[in-house]
Each structure stands twice: as structure tokens, then as C-alpha cells.
Amino acid sequence: MKTIQITAPNLEETFNQLQNIFAAEYSVDFKEHTLKFDSDLGYGTIKGMKLKGAISFIQFNVTFATDVKLVFTTPKQTLVNFAYCSEGKIEHSFNNRENRTELETFQTGILSNINEETNCLYFSRELTTTASIIGVNTASDTNDINMINEQLRQLFITDRTEDLAYVSSYNLKIAEKIKQLKAIKQEGVVRTLLVEGLVHVILALEIEQHSIDKVKRNQNTGSLTSKEMSAVKDLSEYINNFPETNLTVTELAHKIGLTPSKLQEGFKLMHSRTVNDYIRDVRVTKSEELIKTTDMNISQILYTLGFSSRSYFSKIFKEKYNCSPSQYKAQNKLAATA
């Protein structure tokens, strides 16, 4: 196993150390640090950004040729780290302990040093891993401290006598936000604002998942396996790419090897709605895009997206956009010629 010690006091120095270790290409775009490497150690990208509210964000998209352990020096009773694995797996321990906490795909973990001064992250060789870590500094002497930081300190640090390593249930909503992060094409300040907004959403979802787990701790939640969750995610992408699909729930479930009940469970977890409601929402959203970006008339859009009833389409479009499709098309046409 390759052990890499990171003793940097801040994000910038962390990336400077990683650049030297990985012999990586290093760039900074406004506030975002990016390392790209392809060496005997492996290949991949590491990104990081310092955000408002004493928050830092690091994202790994890496494949190592050997087992790798990253050891970060961390002040006691200061940081609350929210880790999420959207591909592969990562493991964590405090101060080189033998006992490790494993995060599988689609799981989030909450980590806080109470007694120890190091966080160790373990990456398995030849396993492509995408993982993100949001660190919140709750130190009372931090200038950027706010009410949220103090609440996190009360929740995850104050009155604790042991280091915290909590692993949540599976959460696909966070995976969708990570995907949106990776899809951002803008640069400079616009990119920074978009990343910052999504990171705050991810942080909120991770805290929410912890609260949900506390309520359901003694209940049988019937959670899907990571493989089944991944299948639901793939089907969601299929529906987004082919919203005109007229397959039934049973046929869609068979397509990915799940039962209809498990498919519905996955969609409620990931999208907070049933499969049919999700298809309907995707179609309406796509129809709005087509109205704005094409010369297709309403009937052509209906046919393209698989709607069979114009009156039904008008009804659900109005529910979402507060006007009929024809009115929306007329307004956009007027705006384009103004």
C-alpha cells in the first residue's frame, strides 16, 4: 500500500503537496483547484474549492494502480466532514486504526475528530472511485463562522467523547447533484457560484439523510442494495434520454432486473415520486425546452414526447408553468422579437 501524508494547513497547500506527490498538472480557475495526473501511481482528477461559511470541498475521480492511503492531519474537535461515494468505494479510519469505516456507492458518511488528529482515506487499486468530501470548520475562532457551523458543532462535536464515523443509508439524490457538478461547463466566477450552490445543496441532503436515519433507526426501511440503486439511476437516465417511452412500470422494472415494487421504492427514494410521475415531469420539462428552442408546433411536441392527449398535456403544463403551452410559446416568440 502506498501511504501519502498530507500535513498542509489549508486547501491550497494540500493541492501543492498532492501536485508534487502525483507529478500532476495543476491549475486554478478563480477559486477552484484542479489536479490531473497519469503516472505509475494511477490516473484521475482531484478538484477542490474553499467556500463561504468556512466550508471546503474536495472531489476525487481516481483510479490507482496500487492500494493508496491518504493521511490528513486534522485539528481535534474542529471539523465535521461529510463524505459521499458516487462510484466505487472508499474506506476511512482515524489515526491509522485497524478498524475502518466503508462507504459503498451511494452512501454518505459523517466524520469528526474528537480524540485523534488524523483522517485516513483508503482507495482500492484498479477500482475507479468518485468521492467527495465537504469539510465544515466549526472552530469558534474562525472568522467565517455562522449559525449553521455552530449548529453542526452542537450536533456532531459538542459533548462527544469518541470520534464520530457515521455511515448513512443509500441516497441517490446526492448522486444526481454530483452528476450536475461534473456537468458544469462554465468557467470563472459563474462556475464558482454554480459549484458553491450545488455543494450547499449536497450538504443539506447529507444532513437530511442523517436526520431521516435517526427517525428510522429502529424500523425496517427495506433499502435497496447499491447495485439495485445503480440500476434505478441508469433507468432514470434512460427516461431522460427517451421521455417518449411508453413502457409500463412492469416492463421498465423487467428492463433493469427489478420487481415493480423495488423500482417504485427506488424512484421514491431518488426522486420523491412514482415512476409514472417522474416520466410525466420529465416530459413536461422537455416540452418547455422544445417550445423555447425549436420551431415545432404544440402537436409536434406532443407526438415527439409521447403524449396521447392534448388536453391532459395542457393541464399538467399549466400546473408547472402557470400558463398553457400555446401562451408560453407566444410569450417566448414575442420575447425573441422584442
Score class of each variant (00 low, 15 high):
148 I>S: 04
115 N>T: 13
221 T>V: 15
183 A>D: 14
226 S>C: 09
182 K>N: 14
119 N>H: 14
226 S>Q: 06
263 L>W: 05
289 E>V: 09
202 I>Y: 03
11 L>W: 07
45 T>I: 14
289 E>A: 12
48 G>E: 01
130 T>R: 04
212 I>F: 14
48 G>V: 02
336 A>I: 08
136 V>G: 01
170 Y>K: 04
66 T>G: 06
128 T>C: 07
294 T>N: 13
5 Q>F: 12
268 K>C: 07
101 T>Q: 06
287 S>V: 00
46 I>E: 00
231 A>T: 05
58 I>F: 02
59 Q>R: 12
312 Y>A: 12
147 M>E: 14
144 D>W: 06
231 A>K: 03
183 A>C: 08
144 D>V: 05
278 Y>E: 01
31 K>V: 10
74 T>A: 04
129 T>F: 03
321 Y>I: 11
324 S>P: 08
274 T>V: 09
26 Y>D: 03
51 L>P: 01
128 T>G: 05
2 K>N: 07
24 A>Y: 03
148 I>P: 00
122 Y>D: 03
144 D>K: 08
142 T>M: 13
230 S>E: 08
80 V>I: 09
196 E>G: 14
304 T>R: 11
326 S>Q: 15
178 I>W: 00
234 D>Y: 09
258 L>D: 05
98 E>N: 14
99 N>Y: 06
139 A>F: 11
228 E>L: 05
139 A>V: 04
172 L>Q: 09
168 S>M: 03
256 I>W: 06
170 Y>C: 02
202 I>S: 00
166 Y>N: 09
46 I>V: 15
126 E>A: 14
335 A>I: 11
142 T>E: 15
121 L>C: 07
75 P>Y: 05
146 N>A: 09
170 Y>N: 01
69 K>C: 11
235 L>N: 00
9 P>G: 06
304 T>Y: 11
211 S>F: 14
294 T>M: 12
307 F>M: 09
270 M>V: 04
106 F>A: 02
106 F>D: 00
22 F>N: 01
327 Q>N: 07
32 E>Y: 02
239 I>R: 06
123 F>S: 03
88 G>N: 03
99 N>K: 14
122 Y>T: 04
318 K>W: 10
33 H>A: 10
316 I>T: 10
229 M>W: 04
323 C>D: 05
160 R>F: 14
311 S>R: 06
45 T>P: 00
193 L>R: 15
204 A>Y: 08
228 E>T: 05
68 V>L: 12
270 M>H: 07
183 A>F: 10
237 E>C: 10
286 K>G: 00
245 T>V: 13
149 N>W: 01
133 I>M: 08
310 R>N: 12
231 A>I: 04
231 A>W: 00
131 A>G: 02
109 G>Q: 01
172 L>P: 08
194 L>E: 06
169 S>Q: 11
168 S>K: 01
63 T>H: 04
308 S>F: 10
231 A>V: 03
42 G>R: 01
304 T>W: 06
277 D>F: 03
206 E>L: 06
81 N>P: 00
23 A>H: 15
